[in-house]
Amino acid sequence: MADLITLRVTRYRPENDTEPTTQDYEIPLRKEWAVLDGLNHIKDHLDGTLSYRWSCRMGICGSCGMTVNGEPRLTCATFLEDCAPGPIRVEPLRNFPVIRDLVVEIGDFMRKLPQVKPWVIREEEASIDSEYLQTPAELDQYKQFSMCINCMLCYSACPVYALDKDFLGPAAIALAQRYNLDSRDQGSAERMDVLSAAEGIWSCTFVGECTTACPKGVDPAGAIQRYKFTAAMESLKAFLLPRGTR
């Protein structure tokens, strides 16, 4: 008989429930199982109505983020054994409205993304029968910020976003920096207004929870700090220099 462990899963069915409840499921405690394997076991064998998102099982799609024992985690990369002896609390990601059970509404993020203009902005369009040149060193400037998988763990971890939903948030700002620091891009001035606004970088109190939560090492907190310096320099320049030389 294999060892068992309890998953204490948050259930919420908007048609029936006014408040979320929890439900305990006993599942096999296997050395190689991640929390996601446990949820799939529940869905396939114990309760086919449990709703949650997942896809790739390999930490690249960013669908299976949930709150595990209070921490925002990708459930495909969080092992049951590391959470033993249980019960393991599995809740939806914090700071987002819950649709059902463990599924959250991330429309707010999807609406914020376009504000930072996450595409290469050029004064003139390139012709497609060629490529821009970019040295490996130039690539290294922004590569780290391109690793984001939109898993929302950083928003879930962010204490500022918890209080102020207007805050642009870690992933969106890191994405802006991904383009600002891309040698092919000429659009950093266009992104400045939204980044420097009250809901942009200055809301961040540099708690750094986003960087701790990030499963891909993007370091959004670093991106924000770096941009604060850029923005400060720009406003200093605006103050000190005559217009033409800026």
Partner: peptide, 10 residues
């Protein structure tokens, strides 16, 4: 794709 902003190793 590169002109649209895709990042490639160089």
């Amino acid at each position: 794709l590169e002109a649209w902003g895709a990042l490639f190793d160089r």
